Deep mutational scan, measured.
Amino acid sequence: MEVRTIKVFTTVDNINLHTQVVDMSMTYGQQFGPTYLDGADVTKIKPHNSHEGKTFYVLPNDDTLRVEAFEYYHTTDPSFLGRYMSALNHTKKWKYPQVNGLTSIKWADNNCYLATALLTLQQIELKFNPPALQDAYYRARAGEAANFCALILAYCNKTVGELGDVRETMSYLFQHANLDSCKRVLNVVCKTCGQQQTTLKGVEAVMYMGTLSYEQFKKGVQIPCTCGKQATKYLVQQESPFVMMSAPPAQYELKHGTFTCASEYTGNYQCGHYKHITSKETLYCIDGALLTKSSEYKGPITDVFYKENSYTTTIK
Rank of each mutant, 00 (worst) to 15 (best):
P34A: 12
T103H: 03
T64N: 14
S310I: 13
K229T: 10
H18C: 08
P131G: 06
A247P: 02
R83C: 08
T10C: 15
K106D: 15
I45G: 13
N49Y: 11
L126M: 09
G299Q: 03
V8F: 06
S79M: 15
L151H: 01
G29F: 13
N157H: 13
Y84K: 04
V188M: 10
Q123F: 02
F70M: 15
R83Y: 06
A177W: 00
L200G: 01
V166T: 07
S86P: 04
V58E: 05
N309C: 10
G257M: 07
T159G: 10
N111T: 02
C182N: 03
L151A: 03
P47G: 08
Q31Y: 13
Q238R: 02
T43H: 14
T75I: 10
V236D: 04
T55Y: 07
H276E: 02
T266Y: 08
K7S: 14
H18N: 09
Y269Q: 15
G267D: 10
A146E: 09
E52R: 13
D135Y: 09
P224L: 14
E168I: 07
V21H: 13
V189M: 11
Q196W: 13
L121Q: 00
E204K: 12
I15W: 08
T27V: 13
Q98N: 12
H48Y: 12
G53M: 13
P241F: 02
K106Y: 14
Q222Y: 10
Q30W: 10
N61L: 13
T27G: 08
T10V: 14
Q251F: 15
M207Y: 09
K92V: 10
I152S: 02
N110C: 01
P60W: 09
G299I: 01
H176R: 10
S171Q: 09
K218Y: 04
G202T: 00
Y84Q: 00
C112F: 02
L186P: 02
C261M: 06
A115T: 14
T35H: 00
Y73C: 03
D303S: 00
E68C: 06
N178G: 07
V188Y: 08
M26P: 06
Y36T: 05
L212C: 08
A108R: 14
D62I: 07
E239W: 06
I15C: 10
L290Y: 15
F217N: 03
E2R: 11
A87V: 06
V236L: 09
E253P: 07
N147Y: 09
Y36A: 05
Y73N: 02
F9E: 11
L65M: 10
Y57Q: 08
N178M: 08
L119A: 07
V22G: 09
Q123E: 10
